[in-house]
């Protein structure tokens, strides 16, 4: 994933959210996304069965 790819993702998603991102903020946003991409790579490798639920449980 290149910086250009991450910037393109940031621009498209921010537009969807109505979230302005100024040019001086973009390098930090890209750096933050790189941290998230690395974390996501770790959790993606965990084999989960379809029966494994998310941690928070709602109690009515």
């Amino acid at each position: 994933m290149t910086d250009e790819d991450l910037e393109a993702h940031a621009r498209a998603t921010a537009a969807l959210l109505g979230l302005p991102i100024a040019p001086h903020q973009m390098p930090g946003v890209i750096a933050g996304l790189k941290v998230a991409v690395a974390a996501a790579a770790l959790i993606e490798r965990v084999p989960l069965t379809e029966a494994e639920e998310a941690a928070p449980v709602f109690r009515a």
Partner: peptide, 23 residues
Amino acid sequence: DRFLAGALLPAHWITQAQRVRAA
């Protein structure tokens, strides 16, 4: 910028993260 980046994460990652957290 970390907060801004946090707003832009794919939903799949967060749900996967909550399931990995349970694991």
